[in-house]
């Protein structure tokens, strides 16, 4: 029988994979993909808590919808900026972002 714990473990694993991906990946697009995994882990958590909780109103599900919408806006902004970056340097490696440092 699949219960709440299974979902939480899956979400935690997704979150960790996403976080590691966002931190170690060299390509800005791949970093964004890592962030998306982290956000989906959050959504999974919210929906699972909703399904196995005793709430009258599906609060978690509605918050998940908010997160999906805001994440789309975030990705749109991020991709636009990464595109500008690509036009200047013809690559999107985050290692090359070294004009600003002390």
């Amino acid at each position: 029988m699949i219960g709440l714990d299974h979902y939480l473990v899956l979400a935690a694993a997704l979150f960790c994979i996403g976080f590691v991906g966002a931190v170690v990946k060299r390509n800005a697009i791949a970093v964004l993909m890592g962030v998306e995994l982290m956000l989906n882990a959050v959504n999974l958590n919210l929906v699972a808590f909703d399904r196995f909780g005793v709430h009258v109103v599906p609060l978690g599900q509605s918050f998940a919808v908010f997160i999906i919408a805001v994440a789309a806006a975030e990705v749109a902004v991020a991709l636009a900026i990464i595109l500008t970056l690509y036009r200047r340097r013809s690559n999107t490696r985050v290692d090359d972002l070294d004009m600003l440092k002390w």
């Binding site: 976080f19 970093v31 962030v35 982290m38 882990a41 990464i82 500008t84 970056l85």
Partner: peptide, 19 residues
């Protein structure tokens, strides 16, 4: 460059906050 750094780091931080 500053914009790229800001959006990537701010996205990661808000994902952590959301979790």
């Amino acid at each position: 460059e500053a914009g790229t750094k800001y959006i990537l780091l701010s996205a990661i931080s808000s994902a952590v906050l959301l979790f």
